[in-house]
Amino acid sequence: MIRETAYHEIFDSQRHFRTLLDAMARPGKIDRFAPVAITPPPPLTNAAACTALALLDSDSTFDAASLGPDAIRYVQVNTGARAVPIAEADFVFLDGGDVASAERIAAARAGIPTYPETGATIVLQVSRMSRSSGAGGLELTLSGPGIETTTHVVINGLQARNLESLARRNREFPLGVDAIVTADDGGIICLPRTTRVSWATV
């Protein structure tokens, strides 16, 4: 298992956090992590790994069971976070193209009414995202805090079932889960629990 050495704990994590901060504050805005030479084991993508390196440490827990033992080991070794069953995890890493992820989203922690921030963060891996093009993908229409009116984004490699599951998990605000959607090409968008999402196939 490779221990990442090119990743700068102070400055890379700060830059990547700022990318996440901007994306979380402006749902649907496609942001991109500044490149860094890391080599996460497939199917864990670069952008999902950057998210893990920026946010996880030994104070946090995660579940990446659906991405296989190499991904789990990678996150453990490089962040010190503890792998736990999905219902206890602060962060859940999932494949957006896998319909089985829908059940996992339903099983993720949604927080409690007095402390809703204990709801999980879902890191959802997809293949591609763009503002318009992308045949065979889903066109998402988003509205809510962080979005002036509505915004659109086209995502490839994302099953509609997973979006449905996400919407169902976020029906009882303030309870819910917040999604960080990461693409193979390094793009990210965030879908916090406040974002209303509708979609159509393109």
Binding site: S13, F17, L20, L21, M24, A25, A54, L55, L56, D57, D59, S60, D90, P116, E117, G119, T121, P145, G146, P174, G176, D178, P192, R193, T194
Partner: peptide
């Protein structure tokens, strides 16, 4: 990192 995680959650629950 802990504060950053909390800021992201604070954004998600305005």
């Amino acid at each position: 990192r802990e504060i950053r995680r909390k800021i992201l959650k604070a954004i998600a629950i305005p």
